[in-house]
Design a protein around this nucleic acid. Structure first.
Lengths: 159, 159
DNA sequence: CTACTTGCAAATCATTTGCAGATGA
DNA sequence: TCATCTGCAAATGATTTGCAAGTAG
């Protein structure tokens, strides 16, 4: 079920769910049926998603009350805390993406179709390092969103 | 009442309130006492702020019911639409900053004290142009947030 | 005049929390 | 066993909306 990966994945020693189990154990927390399920769904395809989109993927389970909204929100927080996924604030709601096993990157955001396109630039990273340095800033990371209109939407607009 | 401006301002033909009046007129809208007041408060000092902080600046007016929360929200949207201010999603809530009469810039965000520090890098802008180009993306703008720990907080931590 | 605005109260919307029963180590 | 979970229902908190009364042009 290969998707349109714009960046390659990175080899990791543990699967996301193993890595999550490890994180939970270190915190005295447990790997439950629900948490297991959520990691698997989240990592079953590379995509940007929000809580509602994830909800959509498991709506039958929710209907069967084998999973609930609060648990999804709770688990997304834990996955974020564990560094498996990354949370970003985009137009009101929270959007998540894979972080574990996936290289650092930034985003192009299409104002028309709302799509997020990934890119990586080591020059950009270099500049960020320099700027942090100039401000005696202890660098943790950065996020760049480039906004505009994607190639597809441009074509669609000017036929 | 000079603040710690990290970037210079830019000459503009109209004051923010004049510019706003013009925008409103073009839309068949009116310059009211409340809208006038809000532009003035917003542009009375250069700062990043959210709706609540603005509320705080005018709490006496709200108490006297010369102004209300909904009007503040409504006006912030209009100011954003008019391009006078810029809205950014930061940790849950919306944060605003001046755009009119103020040069483009990006931000360093301190994870400890939450402060936003502005910087400008034409190299960064150049890279963004190149990336957009490579993706046949019609560039509108970009936002970069560099996260980490600011100089003050580092000093405070390691004495 | 009269369409645009405002404050108020109530509605939204996404997300969070308290709690009693269920369950993983 | 029993502390950690879960689903439920209700709470939150920021922002938005419907509406009757006020006001700018």
């Amino acid at each position: 079920m290969a998707k349109d990966y714009s960046l390659r994945s990175v080899k990791v020693p543990l699967s996301p769910s193993e890595r999550f189990a490890q994180f939970l154990a270190a915190k005295g927390k447990r790997m439950t049926r629900q948490r297991q399920l959520i990691v698997e769904v989240v990592f079953s395809h590379h995509d940007h998603f929000d809580a509602d989109e994830l909800m959509e993927h498991v709506k039958d389970l929710i209907a069967r009350r084998e999973l609930s909204r609060p648990t999804i929100y709770r688990t997304l927080s834990e996955l974020t805390e564990a560094g498996l996924i990354r949370k970003m604030a985009l137009a009101g709601r929270s959007v998540y993406e894979h972080q574990y096993g996936y290289p650092r990157h930034d985003h192009l955001h299409c104002d028309v179709c709302n799509r997020l396109i990934e890119f990586h630039s080591s020059q950009l990273e270099q500049i960020v390092r320099e700027v942090a340095d100039q401000h005696q800033f202890e660098l943790n990371g950065h996020r760049t969103f480039v906004t505009g209109i994607c190639a597809d939407c441009r074509r669609r607009r000017k036929p």
